[in-house]
Each structure stands twice: as C-alpha cells, then as structure tokens.
Amino acid sequence: MFRRLTEASGPALTVEIDGMRVPAQEGDTVAAAMLASDHVVARTSAVSGTARAPFCMMGVCFDCLVTIDGVGNRQACMTAVRQGMRIDTGRGKRQYGQ
C-alpha cells in the first residue's frame, strides 16, 4: 500500500510476518513495515470478523493489534521493529486454548 521515498538511511532489517520474511528499516514501526510490504491487514475484528488495517498510526485506534514475539494485542504502530521480530496478524477474538 506504501512505498519508500528514500533508499535505506539506516541498517536494513528482516522481520517475519505470518511466517514470511519481510525487509524493514531501522526506525520503522511494525505497522510501517507491514504497510511497506503489502501486509496491510493487521487482524480481523472481534465482533464481525472483518479485516482491519493500521488506521491512525499514533496509538489511538487499536485497529493494528498484532501478536509480536508471542505476545498478543500489541499495537503495531507503537512498537519499533527489531531484527528477527516475529509478527503474527490476528484472527478475531482469542480462541480457547491459545
């Protein structure tokens, strides 16, 4: 959905989104890295199960909740990427046993 205007200004990183290796830049938030790599959908909604993407980018809307390194309900727009970070997009409400 987004492209980079500038070539790498900082070190290039690799993160894993739903098992796929994706490039990111130092200084990106998780949400920025997702939008730059066309992983637009962060989760499905808890009520109707419809897809949601990062919306406000400043920690207000909570639409970008993802699982980061095994910890659920993290705000992708408020979390800086780190090398090797594992990001899993969400599917509705937490299921029993997960």
Partner: peptide, 9 residues
Amino acid sequence: LLKSSGLVP
C-alpha cells in the same frame, strides 16, 4: 508514515 519512515502511498 511519511515523516517517520519516508513512506508514501
């Protein structure tokens, strides 16, 4: 996104 990562649609 533009300011912090230089991203444009």
